[in-house]
Design a protein around this nucleic acid. Sequence first.
DNA 1: TTCTAAAATTGAGTCAATTCTGTTTTTATG
DNA 2: CATAAAAACAGAATTGACTCAATTTTAGAA
Lengths: 204, 204
Amino acid sequence: MSGLRARQKAYRHRRIIEAAAALFREAGYEGAKIEAIAAQAEVSIGTIYNYYQNKGDILGAIVSLEVNEVLNAGRGVVANPPANVGDALDALVGIYIEHSLHYLSKEMWRQAMAISTQLPDSPFGQAYTALDRSLTEQIRALIARLQEIGLVRQDIDGASLGELIFNNMNMMFIEFVKRDKAGMPELRAAIRRQNRILVAAIGV
Amino acid sequence: MSGLRARQKAYRHRRIIEAAAALFREAGYEGAKIEAIAAQAEVSIGTIYNYYQNKGDILGAIVSLEVNEVLNAGRGVVANPPANVGDALDALVGIYIEHSLHYLSKEMWRQAMAISTQLPDSPFGQAYTALDRSLTEQIRALIARLQEIGLVRQDIDGASLGELIFNNMNMMFIEFVKRDKAGMPELRAAIRRQNRILVAAIGV
DNA sequence: TTCTAAAATTGAGTCAATTCTGTTTTTATG
DNA sequence: CATAAAAACAGAATTGACTCAATTTTAGAA
């Protein structure tokens, strides 16, 4: 089954992603010309477009790597949350934020976000939406867990609350990547401050 | 003072915006070629670029019209809010949402949002951020008003709360424009549901 | 009225993403 | 081991946003 063709395919995918990731970081998204990516990956322009529908999809593949790592790291917190609602939320938010610039620069995030709103039905757009949904889901799972433990009132609408927290965090993150000078500690502190209002409302 | 030159300038601005608005709606943002906008406005391509730095800025001018109308309509609610926290928030949110597709189609919103994240330092990017800030400010003003009236607890951090409500609404609106099928009533209902958690927390 | 500098306009030219079409490589089959 | 169909590849051609040097128009001084 796994013939030459399949192996070469995987190999080329990897080469393209590696070349693109390096060039995006060095030269920025716009600065990284498809021609240069093709040259560095040692394939032709046509081949790149055979593998990815457009330049944005290449970036999309990198974003997907990042977010999936973040989701994985988040599982730990959900399974074993700090014994205090505020800290539990902060721990999860912290993981998301601290991991976020591992593969991606702020400029790359901006581009990725832009493309996902611009073309919500493209493969990347849909993948991005799915990733957002997974993150929302994870926050909901944390809340459900806290309800189980008895740290959050049972009568709270966990689904709406999860969405509310995710939406707020996500908007704050969008603003964070829009300003190159914005720092992570300030971002975390602001989100903590906002969540405090909710924490007061939902604690037992 | 207001000589021929100034009059022609205003006239051409208007022609370009009108031509662009019509074509954006008909053909979509990408579909509306600069050449076509120029032809319809009866100016040359170069002139368009003399008036606007790029295609996005033309859209930006239209967005600005829309949001400023919305802000104006919102002032009424802040001055005279319904005598109930949930209804007051819903009234303001309602105005924002119902007005939002007056000049702009969902596709145009998507493009506008995308550009504002992609190029946060461009004239349009900065203008868009300023508009968002004005909306946040208006929500904060409403909360302050409700605190005055005695409908919201005095010890609530109004600034953070306003941000939280705006961020959540804005993310919901982003998702709304990303899905062509999404409807306004569902959007409003979802936001109301999310705000309910807050309303319970902040009411006297 | 005539002249001149500044401002505005023009559209052909540039640049880079994407498409298209012919060629090459791989796989499946006899 | 041939060979035909299918898949992948290459890179030239296309397309459309944006630039820029040349030209035209305007404002105001003489």
